[in-house]
Design a binder for these strands. Structure first.
Length: 453
RNA sequence: GUGGGUGUAGCUCAGUUGGUUAGAGCGCCAGGUUGUGGCCCUGGAGGCCGUGGGUUCAAGCCCCAUCACUCACCCCA
């Protein structure tokens, strides 16, 4: 690389005030307010997964690039233009995970999970990375809730996946905003036959195809069908339809999926055009669309991938899974006006005057917190007025006040902020008294079972 | 990758046909007498007007470039 004009934009050394420090394009901070949503959504997901017997897995944020190339498909948009790929110091190519299934399947094979009782049911809540042009609901780093059921093939399992998503969406208050789209793209065998038919159809018509499609014709003819190029579309419309190549087994599978959905009272839209952008899918595919805006920005999707485990070097193993985009779910919740409970509200503000009072406040604050009372003290603030103003900003229901007089008398003033009334309480009774005021059910107590992130 | 919109204080935005020391609301900080919040009042901090270049006696405003943000397309979460 020679000197470019871009170099002029970079600040000279010692001139760093010119450089604005900011997060990379399309990659954002999750600020405390949005974490209320994140926390709530993750909690819903964890509970629903656990109830269904799923266990959590975290695969690395990086994999060897080959993992994604093999699983997702070289010719997909995700692999061909959206991966964050780089070499480590030894020259091996690594990629930030753009989706969750490839890593999960790799882990299933690597750890011999085929020896576990089948099917193996895994879930994850993880960040993913795609080098895409950012827009609403689409970021270069984004969070997905996903699940995989590996090791058994039955339409009931496909429906389990869909139903889990449906339960979560209902818990989150957005189920009625979402439209389930389903399709069946057949078994690998029927897809192979269909591909042959497509290649036959396109043979001799190559000149009318766009460059990409001329290449895809041999690498992945199915992708010719959803090319947006005008000429390609015209050809695609006249191309053989997949329905003719669905085997009776495929049809039975699809019929059962629909019957099971009906049994669970889940409405859906059948969409024969629905082809997912990742190559590993077979049979059932589905997406969750926003009813008002349609296909772009699906909040989630998934499907069956019966060939993937074998493709990645494992034994022939059927599987099905899905993923939900957390940021997109939050968007939906905000648009629906869903308010999540905040766990950040502070219960007690402790104001103090003088070093003696401050000294007494330190253990008191500790005791309050241990009792599950969310407590903040203005230990660095000066005047009483400034401290009380701060207490007001925190919107605490009660305030504890201690000065030299209280220290001498061994009491603490407990002030009810909404009533504007206060009274002195003996120091030794304060924690008990405040606990009563806040209410046992509102305490923020620590239980070892709840420390997941 | 392609196209549109927008860049002025921490946030939301004003800024007249180019014309003195660039403004408001909210927020932040400090006061409004002796140790007590909200409402109100007073004061204060905080802006190379995204960046670079050009036109002009004079640029936040006009021109060019560049960067960033944002929305849409493609595709997906």
């Amino acid at each position: 690389m020679s000197d470019s004009t871009q170099d002029d934009v970079l600040p000279a050394e010692g001139n760093s005030k010119v450089l604005k420090m900011q997060s990379p394009m399309g990659i954002h901070d999750i600020l405390p307010k949005d974490h209320e949503y994140f926390t709530f959504i993750k909690k819903v997901a964890r509970h629903r997964f656990r109830q269904a017997g799923f266990r959590r897995i975290t695969t690395p944020i990086l994999e060897y690039t080959e993992v994604f190339k093999r699983a997702v498909g070289e010719d997909t948009d995700v692999v061909s233009k959206e991966m964050y790929t780089f070499e480590d110091r030894s020259g091996r190519s690594l990629t930030l995970k753009p989706e969750g299934t490839a890593g999960a399947v790799r882990a299933y094979i690597q750890h011999g999970m085929k020896e576990l009782p089948q099917p193996v049911e895994l879930y994850y809540i993880e960040p993913h990375f795609r080098y895409d042009r950012p827009q609403k609901g689409r970021y270069r780093m984004f969070w997905q809730i996903g699940a995989e059921i590996i090791g058994e093939s039955d339409p009931a399992l496909d429906v389990q996946c869909i139903f889990l998503v449906y339960k979560m969406l209902r818990d989150l208050g957005i189920a009625e905003r979402i439209d389930l789209q389903i399709n069946n793209i057949g078994s690998q065998k029927s897809r192979e036959k269909y591909k042959e038919a497509l290649v036959n159809y396109y043979t001799g018509k190559e000149r009318s195809l766009c460059e990409d499609c001329q290449r895809r014709m041999h690498s992945n003819p199915l992708r010719l069908l959803d090319c947006k190029n005008e000429d390609c579309r015209i050809l695609a419309q006249l191309a053989p339809k997949f329905e003719q190549y669905r085997t009776p087994e495929d049809q039975d599978f699809h019929r059962l999926v629909k019957e099971f959905l009906d049994e669970l009272g889940i409405t859906y839209t059948e969409n024969p055009q629905l082809v997912r952008g990742l190559d590993y899918y077979t049979q059932t595919v589905f997406e969750f669309w926003d009813k008002s805006t349609g296909s772009q920005n699906a909040i989630g999707g998934g499907g069956r991938y019966d060939g993937l485990v074998e493709l990645m070097g494992g034994p022939a193993t059927p599987a099905v899974g899905f993923a939900l985009g957390i940021e997109r779910v939050i968007n939906q919740m905000k648009e629906a006006g869903v308010i999540v409970p905040s766990k950040d509200e502070v219960h007690i503000f402790v104001a103090q005057l003088g070093d003696e009072a401050k000294k007494k406040c330190l253990p008191l604050i500790d005791q309050l917190r241990d009792a599950g009372i969310r407590t903040v003290g203005a230990l660095g603030k000066g005047s009483m007025k400034a401290q009380m103003r701060l207490a007001d900003k925190f919107a605490v229901p009660y305030c504890l006040i201690m000065g030299a007089t209280e220290v001498r008398e061994g009491v603490v003033i407990v002030r009810d902020m909404s009533k504007g009334q206060q009274r002195a309480v003996p120091m030794k009774d304060v924690v008990k008294e405040v606990t009563k005021l806040i209410g046992k059910e509102n305490l923020d107590t620590y239980t070892p079972g709840e420390i997941a992130f």
